[in-house]
């Protein structure tokens, strides 16, 4: 029997079932109604690279990295911001829940950093991977995003 060595990489189906919903949720926060095309592109890119993966560590942050790249491309080429009024059910943190509906006004990098940190509990090291930046820059983007949100929130309050 010819065996393909895949070093613990789970079958794509399992990876896909595990992450498809949260990636769609993430992209909805970044892109609003434009999320579905970006979601499909994210998993197609993941599939294109999947047989070249070296190990199964951090597949979650890996797919968030791809989703972030797809979303950034989308926001760069069509920068008009989405109308983002949809209530989001699965947000875990109260503070984020309070501010989440305002993230649509943030610059893309700050928005991704805030959503990944407070919506998905990703550590800054993995957010840095997703943004293609240093950990310090990821931390700075998230805190700058949060400051901006607070200012907006206070204006609205």
């Amino acid at each position: 029997m010819m065996e393909v060595v895949s070093q613990g990489i789970p079958p794509f189906e399992r990876f896909y079932l595990e992450h498809r919903n949260e990636v769609l949720g993430y992209l909805r926060r970044l892109l609003g109604q434009r999320a579905e095309d970006a979601w499909q592109e994210t998993f197609l890119r993941a599939l294109r690279a999947y047989d070249r993966l070296q190990n199964a560590r951090n597949l979650r942050s890996w797919v968030f990295t791809i989703a972030t790249n797809v979303a950034m491309d989308e926001l760069r080429t069509k920068p008009q911001l989405p109308v983002d009024g949809e209530p989001v059910a699965e947000i875990r943190r109260d503070a984020f829940r309070e501010l989440e509906h305002l993230t649509g006004d943030l610059p893309p990098t700050e928005r991704a950093a805030v959503v990944l940190r407070y919506g998905y509990d990703l550590p800054y090291a993995q957010i840095a991977d997703a943004l293609g930046s240093s950990e310090d820059a990821a931390r700075a983007a998230a805190s700058s995003g949060v400051r901006r949100l607070r200012r907006t929130h206070e204006r609205h309050a």
Binding site: M1, V4, S6, I9, P11, F12, E13, Y50
Partner: peptide
């Protein structure tokens, strides 16, 4: 069986 398929044919296994 998904794991068997991944080992035999490659990890890009999809239903």
């Amino acid at each position: 069986m998904e794991d068997v398929l991944a080992r035999s044919f490659g990890p890009r296994v999809l239903r």
